[in-house]
Amino acid sequence: MNETNFDVLADPTRRRILAALRDGERPVGDLVREAGIRQSGVSRHLGILEQRGFVAARPEGQRRLYSLRPEPFAELEAWLADYRRLWEARLDRFGAALEAQTTSSEKTPR
């Protein structure tokens, strides 16, 4: 099965692990506490995240420290940019319509 980045991020445990890494490098033990599952499960999810390029591991003595890698997030951001422009344009039109409605109701005598 060939998972996309969206498939990888669909898993809530992986998203918790990524959220825990937003503040910087963390050892597996910290990630186990954040994820709320056993170390073997966290290790499996970290393996998937590492394979897809979301995280990098750095050995330090007998432990490994994990950190986020920016590349896959930049790819997702680029993909979402077109959709963001679409929705921003729609929200701008909606905001203008609300403003016009508010302005016209303020001018209407009561």
Rank of each mutant, 00 (worst) to 15 (best):
T4E: 02
E3K: 07
T103Q: 09
R44C: 07
P70M: 06
S43H: 06
E99H: 13
G95I: 03
I17S: 10
N5F: 08
G53T: 14
V8N: 00
R22N: 12
P59T: 06
G36R: 06
H45R: 15
E75Q: 07
L65P: 05
A100E: 13
S105E: 04
R64C: 13
E106V: 00
R22E: 12
W87I: 02
E99A: 14
E99V: 03
D11T: 11
F6W: 05
R16K: 15
R84N: 00
L65K: 11
P27D: 11
E25M: 13
V8G: 00
L86Y: 02
G36D: 07
V55K: 07
A56Y: 09
N2W: 08
A96E: 06
G41I: 11
E106H: 01
Y66M: 11
V28P: 00
A56D: 13
E50V: 11
Q101T: 02
D82K: 05
A100H: 02
L91I: 05
A74S: 04
L86I: 05
L98Q: 08
R63L: 15
L18G: 14
A57Y: 03
Q62L: 05
D7P: 00
S67W: 06
A56C: 11
V55E: 08
A96L: 06
R90E: 04
E50Q: 15
A35L: 07
D7I: 00
L76Y: 01
R33I: 08
P27Y: 08
P59Y: 04
R15I: 14
E75H: 02
D30V: 09
R26G: 08
Q62G: 12
R63P: 00
F54M: 13
W87Q: 02
R16D: 12
W87V: 03
I37T: 11
E50R: 14
G47C: 13
Q51H: 14
R85S: 01
A100S: 10
L9H: 05
V55M: 07
E50A: 15
D7M: 01
R63H: 13
A96F: 00
R33D: 05
R38G: 11
H45Y: 13
R64K: 15
G53C: 14
A19R: 10
R58Q: 13
R85H: 01
P27S: 04
A57F: 03
A57R: 14
S105Q: 01
V32M: 06
A19C: 09
K107Q: 10
R15M: 15
R63G: 09
A81I: 00
V42F: 10
A74T: 05
E77M: 01
E88Q: 08
